[in-house]
Simulated assay, not measured.
Amino acid sequence: MKANADRAPYDELASDRATRWWVRGNRVGSVQRAGKFVDDVGFALLFPAPRPIGPSLWEAVAGEDAEPFGGGMGEDEQKVWGWKDELPRRGLAWYGAYLGGRGSFLSPALLAAIYPGAGELDDHEHLDLSPGAHEIAGALATEPLSSAALRLILGDKNKYQRAIGELQRNLLVTTAGVQESSNGWPAALLTLTCEQFDVGGRRDHSRATLQYLDTMLDASAAELARAFRWSPARARELLDQLVDTDRATSDGSRYRPLSPP
């Protein structure tokens, strides 16, 4: 009986998250609704992770029991794979390798709240990045370029992957649609985040923390720190501020949002 009692809070949280993360209810069936989903939850993975680090667009489209690519590239897989380029092209959501190093979406509001620069073309120059990352950012300051073109600039596929990963972890680069290539497979078109979204001068880590907690429903300072790449001390400080202003509650290690009166 005790095992069942211990499990009950986790089952309740999973159920609450399924509702909050649009897993239950009407499915997401259009790119416009996908944009509304990301705007509501603030951040989402493209496909679910083994542990619940956040909602996923896949589950909002296909449901909680569907396995991506279980039967190859089906209709749902084609939708979400295409939307990862279309959502940022339309300015509905930022996309890049961010949460847990996985393909992730951020709403424009959350992006602005955690973007690290001033919203200028030279934002990369003020961050500690590799020479390859600076080279890519400098090239994109001139015009959007395909992933294939950027690989040619660096001359090495692995060097390109490391550099673009750096830029996306720092939210400096996003996709902006696709470009047809000579091999028949479309290549992602990349651009600077500040060219595609209104960022810079709007940083608000308190707002970002509230969004994170409102979406996760239950979280620790360590989980928040990993999600947005903050120090654990900074994450705890921000969460404690929510508790002090009656926007969250805590048992000393985990935090939950308080519903507005």
Results as ranks from 00 to 15, higher is better:
M216C: 07
A176W: 15
C194Y: 00
P68Q: 10
P108S: 09
R17T: 00
M73F: 14
R229Y: 05
D16Q: 15
A14C: 12
E166S: 06
G96V: 03
P232I: 03
T209D: 06
A208Q: 10
R256M: 15
V173K: 03
Y160H: 04
F47D: 10
D39S: 15
P108N: 04
Q241K: 12
S220M: 14
A233Y: 06
E77Y: 07
L92T: 01
Y98N: 05
K79Y: 12
Y95M: 05
A233Q: 07
S220A: 15
P232C: 01
G177L: 04
P260A: 15
P131N: 04
T193Y: 02
S104M: 09
F105D: 02
P116F: 00
L129K: 06
I153F: 02
P186S: 13
H134T: 05
K159V: 04
G103K: 00
R207V: 11
R162S: 13
L152F: 11
L217H: 08
T142A: 14
L210M: 13
A66N: 08
G184D: 02
K157S: 11
Y212V: 01
Q196C: 00
W94Y: 09
D123F: 11
A149S: 01
T245W: 14
G138K: 06
A141R: 10
F105A: 04
Y115S: 01
T175I: 05
L154N: 02
Q168K: 01
R203S: 14
V23H: 11
E59Q: 13
